[in-house]
């Protein structure tokens, strides 16, 4: 593990990604300290331009809400959406993949057909339909995005399980009478995890973007501020107040970049390669 960390710190991608994410996490954590209270509260004249009022450094939006507060709190919710989605998708995918891989036979067949079914339906369409019919709240949105994201991990985990299953240490565990679930938990999963983690970067980035697209179609959670909803709202004033969509947009770019770079660095590091260059 230490070697992985060491390699990671030697890869420029990994370091850049790590820095970006640490910065974003700091923003998210500092949000309640720097801007206590509800970031949606109306604090000033609507559409105050940025850098004109020292108490409102980034200006205000259409209703007079503080853009800076929105940006910081938005970091919190956007990162939450990304991470929670990845967590749900990974957990569901790992569970289904492990069960299918270990059980084999009919169970495997049925589960993999379900995976197929989810995979051939466009994920965004699925999220759109699910959120429309269930109502747009943050947990629902997270779950809906995860619905389209868990199949990748499921396939990967199953493939890993199948390849590991016959290896000596698993066979040995079976011989000494370990319960299959115990084998799965102790032997198979930890080994299948690394490639799945690489997939996480994609899921996190996609989740943040899908949340933005849902907000664009009017399906965001109005009780919290997310970068996606800020961009979706700002697009109507793209000509008159472009900063309203550009500022949160930069946040989005930083997140996706950070996650990807870190993911890349991590994958390289875990594959045991020195990053080049």
């Amino acid at each position: 593990m230490n070697r992985v960390a060491g390699r990671l710190l030697h890869s420029p991608e990994g370091v850049a990604g790590l820095c970006l994410l640490v910065l974003l996490a700091a923003m998210a954590l500092a949000a309640p300290l720097l801007f206590p209270g509800d970031p949606l509260v109306i604090v000033g004249r609507p559409l105050t331009a940025p850098f004109t009022d020292p108490t409102l450094p980034l200006g205000t939006d259409r209703l007079g809400r503080d853009v800076a507060a929105g940006l910081m709190h938005g970091a919190q919710t956007s990162l939450l959406v990304g991470l929670a989605t990845a967590l749900v998708a990974l957990a569901a995918g790992a569970l289904v993949g492990t069960v299918a891989g270990l059980a084999g036979g009919l169970v495997d067949e049925v589960l993999m057909r379900v995976v197929d079914a989810f995979q051939i339906v466009p994920g965004f369409l699925l999220a759109l339909a699910f959120v429309s019919v269930t109502g747009a709240s943050l947990p629902v949105i997270i779950f809906a995005i995860a619905l389209g994201a868990w199949t990748g991990p499921a396939r990967l985990v199953r493939a890993e399980v199948l390849s590991i299953r016959e290896r000596d240490y698993v066979a040995a565990a079976r011989v000494i009478g370990m319960h299959p679930a115990e084998i799965a938990l102790r032997e198979v999963l930890p080994n299948a995890l690394p490639p799945v983690l690489a997939l996480t970067a994609v899921i996190v980035a996609t989740a943040v973007l899908v949340e933005a697209a849902l907000s664009f179609l009017g399906l965001g959670d109005p009780n919290v501020v997310t970068w996606g909803s800020m961009i979706a709202e700002g697009r109507n004033v793209l000509r008159t107040a472009p900063h309203l969509s550009i500022v949160p947009g930069l946040g989005l770019v930083a997140t996706v970049l950070g996650v990807y770079l870190l993911g890349e660095g991590l994958a390289d590091a875990m594959a045991g390669r020195e990053a080049r260059g």
Binding site: L209, F216, G228, V253, L257, Y260
Partner: peptide
């Protein structure tokens, strides 16, 4: 570019 929402 990938991080820019398509609608924007």
């Amino acid at each position: 570019l990938y991080a820019v929402p398509s609608f924007w």
